[in-house]
């Protein structure tokens, strides 16, 4: 199987390339022709070399090699043309999240892949955590009727290695864009029939006021679930300090009539202190979720029926993000009943 990595703009590209390179029977090609858009940042043939993967000069050359699948790691606003190119070349697509920055782009990408008969999968690794499978079982039984849901996806601001994350044009926004979708995807996979009915969101730039996008963001959703409007709150802030011992984390608390479950898929770690960093030790040893994500993608490419976050789900999540921004602008909740059927 031949897998192409299109762009190194999102640093997850390095993680994917590294993981793919050690899977027997998988050949990895990469290209990063827009590296010049990121002066002073890692990328291009040099990064491909460091990752030990073959490098192609540009997207056309990569697709001319007829990859079975591609992984698109361009800036959020640059996903659409690459997805359309890949679909036209008959390659299955794993696209970094969020799917896009406009609904028009997201819908066009979904349509292009459907028309070409290829899978469009969005890169949400957390749903592949074995702990989520366990939570799904609890949610289907002992938890009873769902009363409320509270999620967090907090992290360090990611602009140190990739400045585009705080460029409104390239990223589409800040912390709300970057982090809301991971929690939304979890809700989507745990309760596939649920739909967001309204979104209220607030944001500020008190952390890192030097950047042009929101660094703090909270959203309160009303989720139609089991015939009720379940309140869901999500903290999507880049609120871990630069010196924090790890990148961040994601949690979900589900309160039901039967009990309460707290999910913390990144919790497994060795703690302590390291003199070398002057910081807390934080050595995660849990299952590698990016590897589980790639495994699901490659199984889909091989023709297996695996439930994955697709273009429709990605578009739904993006609609909630866009509603959140509208709410931030207006200061009032935004009704999503019409956009999210």
């Amino acid at each position: 199987m031949r897998v192409g990595v299109m762009s190194f703009a999102h640093l997850h590209a390095a993680s994917y390339a590294r993981l793919l390179a050690v899977i027997p029977g998988v050949e990895v090609l990469a290209t990063d022709p827009d590296h010049a858009r990121r002066p002073g940042e890692s990328g291009g043939a040099e990064l491909a070399d460091a990752l030990g993967v073959a490098y192609e000069a540009d997207y056309a050359a990569l697709l001319a090699a007829r990859p079975d699948a591609v992984i698109i790691c361009a800036e959020n606003a640059a996903h659409r043309p690459l997805v359309e190119l890949a679909a036209a070349a008959g390659a299955h697509v794993l696209c970094e999240k969020p799917i896009a920055t406009t609904l028009a782009d997201a819908q066009a990408m979904t349509t292009a892949c459907a028309a070409a008969g290829v899978q469009l999968m969005i890169a949400h690794p957390v749903r592949f955590s074995p702990a989520v499978a366990e939570l799904r079982q609890l949610a289907a039984g002992p938890l009873g009727e769902i009363v409320s849901i509270a999620g967090t996806n907090n992290g360090r601001i990611p602009h140190g290695e990739r400045a585009w994350f705080v460029d409104p044009a390239a990223a589409g926004g800040g912390a709300l864009t970057d982090h809301l979708v991971h929690v939304l995807d979890l809700v989507d996979c745990l309760w596939p029939d649920s739909r967001v009915r309204s979104v209220y969101a607030v944001a500020n730039r008190l952390l890192h006021p030097e950047v042009a996008v929101e660094t703090v963001g909270l959203a309160a959703l009303r989720l139609e679930l089991g015939g009720r409007a379940v309140p869901v709150v999500i903290d999507a802030s880049w609120s871990r300090p630069d010196g924090f011992a790890t990148w961040g984390g994601l949690t979900l608390r589900v309160t039901g009539t039967g009990g309460i479950v707290d999910l913390d898929p990144f919790a497994g770690r060795i703690g302590g202190h390291l003199n070398s960093t002057g910081n807390a030790a934080w050595i995660g040893y849990g299952p590698e979720l990016d590897a589980l994500l790639l495994d699901a993608f490659l199984r889909v490419v091989a023709g297996e029926a695996v439930a994955v976050p697709d273009g429709v789900a990605g578009t739904r999540s993006l609609a909630v993000v866009l509603a959140a921004y509208e709410s931030v602008r207006t200061g009032q909740p935004v009704d999503c009943t019409r956009t999210l059927r």
């Binding site: 955590s129 009990g259 707290d262 302590g272 202190h273 003199n275 030790a281």
Partner: peptide
Amino acid sequence: GGVLTHDSAEHPLLQTDFGDQ
């Protein structure tokens, strides 16, 4: 150069409280 600690009772990936159920 530092210390490494672990307690299997801490940091569960999933924590449950089902009350009296």
